[in-house]
Nucleic acid binder design. Structure first.
Lengths: 247, 247
DNA sequence: TGGAAATGTTGATGTGGATCAAACCTATTC
DNA sequence: GAATAGGTTTGATCCACATCAACATTTCCA
């Protein structure tokens, strides 16, 4: 499945009207705004930035200044330990917000790396603060976005702390499917943008275990796997893997 | 679990001066405020609530309405899976903020349970939103608090996803010690408020593993353990457990 | 205050996923 | 289109932690 790769040359004028005409409007920040408020918002987001596969939007330790709304493409966020071990803390797609980790200490605490050529809307944080004092629904929405990130991470903690390998992978696939669905893509077929190793890092498993578990799901008729291409054949079956006895 | 049995009558006057005279001022919300702003803040927090050991401040699914600043005592937050497995997502002490998980969906997504008789300041969320539109530093501080919660959870993900049992427990102890220190308590001796099982749930380990690892740390002269009492004997040694080869 | 329940420790054994290893497949590059 | 590198699959083996079990200690409250 190809990403919403619009983003050819975008002239200044097009940028000015970024939010008001953006198809991701409902996923991203603004919702339920008056025309007047949308105009304000358009003044907030005045830069888009392309990020090539492998490049980062920001890196750990870097000074924090802006949030980034994923406009198209796919990202991972990662933490790196001194000894080199690294942990993928999330995968992010169109409509997701990146960079909120930086607000608390004024510097970023993880790396945000593009897993395919991507595009983000740069939201200068000061501007967002300002506007969210003026526009109530924006404040409200921004708080919800942060809160949901907290809840998402709770879910990952549950996964990492309490689930077995098969459960983790089932939960992962179902979550991806759900997110693709809510963005209008097929829930039953998609291409993974990340490697087995990155999936493993996110799920607290080794890449071999990820691969084996994919194979097992395939044998069980739950999914079809062909490299990065995944077809969900039995969504209910996958769900029933969650919370099932080790059997 | 008993319902939010509200806060017996508490002297209104004492409450009115809650924030302005609170010793946790710097940990909690307000910081660097003018007298005028502090006055506003005092109007925001007009209830304190006692929570007895074992009772909850809020439960999953419950409608969201307020945030809670821990005034004294100790809490855990937990998620429960359908099949009964549960995951402790955090331990919270004086100055910590609880309830931010509820903002995104207008209902709480975890349980906040007191591990000892405790007291919280109830912060009606609507009031906080309102005030943070008027008082810039409050807005700023609130955003930082949320952001730090995101970063804290990143850290837990790293712990759960990439560390071995000994590392997890060492990180846990060091984190606790650090938090006690920053609250003016001893960094080298403290009492655990939670059981081995709760520690295990938080760290993704079984209680037996927690117990054994405590014993091992004791044998190695890193800590002294006597039931819930912990003395950190060799803080550097504990740090060196992190990121050390399985050796 | 006594006795039951909850919590904690320690030992013996089992196992899920890690590790090590070897092919294989796919994409990129020159 | 051959060479190379990155990614994936699969098998054999290992080990960190889980599980099962027995007992010790503390806490709770009737």
């Amino acid at each position: 499945m190809s990403a919403p790769k619009l983003a050819r040359v975008i002239d200044i004028h097009a940028l000015k009207s970024a939010c008001s005409s953006c198809s991701l409007r409902e996923m991203c920040l603004p919702i339920g705004l008056s025309q007047d408020e949308i105009d304000k918002l358009d003044q907030m987001v005045y830069t888009r930035k392309r990020v090539k596969r492998g490049d980062s939007v920001y890196r750990s330790e870097e000074k924090f200044g802006s949030l980034y709304a994923v406009r198209s493409g796919f990202f991972k966020t990662t933490l790196v330990m001194e000894d080199g071990r690294d942990q993928v803390t999330g995968f992010h797609m169109a409509g997701d917000m990146l960079g909120m980790d930086g607000i608390g200490s004024d510097q970023h605490s993880c790396n945000a790396v593009a897993l395919e050529d991507s595009e983000v809307c740069v939201i200068p944080y000061g501007r967002l603060e300002e506007l969210s004092r003026e526009v109530y629904v924006l404040q409200q929405h921004f708080h919800k976005v942060m809160s949901r990130e907290i809840v998402r991470e709770h879910g990952v903690m549950l996964l990492l702390g309490s689930m077995r390998a098969e459960e983790r992978l089932a939960a992962f696939l179902l979550n991806l499917a759900q997110r693709f669905t809510s963005r209008g893509y097929s829930a039953s077929e998609f291409n993974l943008r990340m490697t087995r190793e990155e999936i493993g890092s996110f799920l607290g498993l080794k890449l071999e275990t990820v691969s084996r578990t994919f194979s097992k799901f395939q044998e069980d008729g739950l999914i079809g796997v062909q490299q990065k291409n995944i077809r969900i054949l039995d969504s209910e079956g996958l769900k029933s893997v969650l919370g099932r006895d080790p059997a």
